[in-house]
Write a protein that binds this DNA or RNA. Structure first.
Lengths: 234, 234, 234, 234
DNA sequence: AATGAATGAGCCTTCATTCAT
DNA sequence: TATGAATGAAGGCTCATTCAT
């Protein structure tokens, strides 16, 4: 029995992305750009990206078959090669593509109006709802899993997400220390500590959730209490 | 099915020939001493296990070629099948085998003579030296990576390592709370928080160490200060 | 594209793409005419079937290498798997495919105008020319050879050929007995006796023809004389 | 699924031939010849021959594993090579060995005291009880199955069994014709006709017995009636 | 002589990639 | 541009044969 046997996601490779529902080809005078061919190509590409992500997450890089990706995306196998050079670069490009929008949101200026803790808490909540709970969480696990085989991915992830995220977090911690919200100043040197439970939550969801469900929100809250001191009023 | 199933060497291919009555190993020198048949079989198995672990860690399950494992172990391809039923069960058995000794050590009674923090700190140090720094750390990452495709592995790991480890940790935390070493009693509900930075250290070593080295020991120390309160004298 | 029936093309890989609407085959010349996609697929399949039959007959199931089949058919190894699930089902499907047309001809109403003997004699002649002398004869031997290892094949052969053939023969014998062409009425219970020499002829051709050629036609004629009584005028 | 899967004769690869139950090694003074080593070797060889025959009949040449043969014979795999050069020559030698005693019995002078029909009938009965019903029948099918791939076997079989058997039968037929027991003199030219139903019986037993049991004795009797004329008193 | 661990050529099967339509 | 049949390199697994014990 090989890996493939276990997984049979392909069964529900439905929703071919409806490439047929094309809006009247090239209605001149409309606001939209050329639309026609290019637009459909973009749709197809999106379908492939979506399908590939699904498959890569479910099986990992090596065990994913492009055949299944094509089927799930509702395109022919050859079409994939019109958009990507090969499996490997598709994988790398995919990860990048998926990460970018997340990075952008995170990079937005924090807008600190109240306490630092409030900001961090909001971030934690966002993380839980938009990462730990979603496909994006699996993406993180995928990066952990394939990183060593794809240095380019690991590099990119470090550069774009990890280092920037930690830098932002460090700035916040410095502020909190300066304001007296956090006592332990050494924490600034290890922003990873603040992130750690969130990462654990992501991994836990993937591997152990059905053994013992984890209340990620409560955990993160407890952890923030540890960092900022217990709150008087909840 | 054929004899093999019934007669099966396959069922659980472990313990190849039960190395019975080995006369004082003589495993000292590098030159090959006489060595009995069974003994050499054991050596071979060990070589295969070692080689396979190396390859699986480096490439993941699907991308590992048994050919390479054999080459690295210095045996013929067929020899692998004298010890393991197939690639998949080799993988599972390997993980189990590698984990067990670690579990046993961890299960040893903590022997609390001084403060709870001292115990936890000793554990953290042990973790760094025996896990984060070693092959065992990569093993943890391997489990995270392949877990979803090998439920048996994930189950085993949860049962033998995670649940037991967390239970032990919780007991320690309860004691610490009772003794007043820890203020925040809610921590007992999330022993994962205590472990989290250690896990992060492991993952960091695998993926980002060459981008930015991480002083795991200092990080864990800082984290413990967060939990137990900053120490007056370091 | 909406091929996605329910994945699994494998189930029964027969009839690859249903060669729909083929424009006048143009299979005359040796040089390759344009020919549609589906048409060429059908040709390829036919080539594989032909090659496989040849190899299976020459070597038996286990000793036949798909590599050789592919080579003989002039296709790549992988192409075989576009038409058949695996070696085993290829074998079974092959046998079935080869038998069916023969069965159909045999099932055609006998059209008894003259004596029963004339009908049986015509059948015997047909058997010699279309079975004993041809590849089909080897096919029968192949079934005898592999039958015990392929119950499905033996079952099919019994159901479609043996039982139907014997039933038809029995009907004929009954008629002959009723008309007084055959004296020994017990023969009706063992139509196998009528077939037996024909089978022997088939086997003889495969195994001993080069030791001692057998005049199958004369033998069958002699046998019919035995059954119907010697003819006055030959 | 490969051939092997289907067959599971191996399950009963029991009765290891009890190589251990050796009679007191070399009791001098006994009537037996040297006994000791040589004798045991002979026993072993016999066990191997027996086991191999069983396996070859059940699976055919190519699909038979020497491992199974050894297991069934209760010897180590290597032991087989002390008695036979390789799988192929083992197979050929086996067939020869198994055929010889049968040939010898058949060659014994017929001793015609009564009618020829009585002699032939006795032979038929013997054939049924000693061939059609037994392992020897499967042997015949095995020869039919593997003959084309083992010309040496086919040659041997033709020379030792077929040609001699047919010659003997022809002599008998000539006598019967001379005595007036058989009318149709042309039968002498095709002694195969006399044998044919017996062969059919053998094949039938292997392939179709569970579909429709065949009363071989009644069939042969009917066939003899056809040849010799119906008997007045049964 | 007997053993059975070890070997490695060989075979079935998969799947990324190509290319004629 | 899109397709999917065709390809063939690659990899898991088997098993006849060897040989040190």
């Amino acid at each position: 029995m090989t890996t493939r046997k276990t997984a049979s996601t392909s069964g529900r490779a439905s929703e071919p992305r409806q490439a047929k529902a094309r809006t009247a080809p090239t209605r001149a005078g409309a606001h939209r750009p050329p639309a026609g061919r290019t637009e459909r190509a973009a749709e197809r590409r999106a379908a492939i990206v979506e399908a590939a992500m699904e498959e890569f997450i479910a099986r990992g890089f090596a065990a994913t078959r492009l055949d299944d990706v094509a089927k799930r995306a509702g395109v022919a196998k050859g079409t994939i090669y019109l958009h990507f050079k090969d499996k490997e670069s598709m994988f790398e490009e995919l990860i990048r593509t998926a990460i970018v929008p997340f990075v952008n949101r995170m990079t937005a200026p924090p807008m600190i109006t109240g306490s630092v803790r409030d900001v961090v808490e909001a971030m934690a909540r966002m993380f839980i709802h938009e990462v730990a709970t979603t496909r994006r969480g699996d993406l993180v696990r995928l990066i952990v899993a394939e990183g060593p085989r794809f240095p380019a991915i690991a590099d990119f992830y470090y550069r774009e997400v990890v280092s920037r995220g930690l830098a932002a977090l460090r700035a916040l911690l410095e502020l909190a220390v300066a304001r007296g919200e956090i006592r332990q100043s050494k924490l600034m040197q290890f922003p990873q500590i603040v992130i750690a439970p969130a990462m654990i939550a992501v991994i836990w969801k993937s591997l152990f959730e059905h053994h013992a469900p984890l209340d990620a929100e409560a955990m993160l809250h407890t952890h923030l209490d540890l960092i900022f001191g217990e709150r008087n009023a909840t």
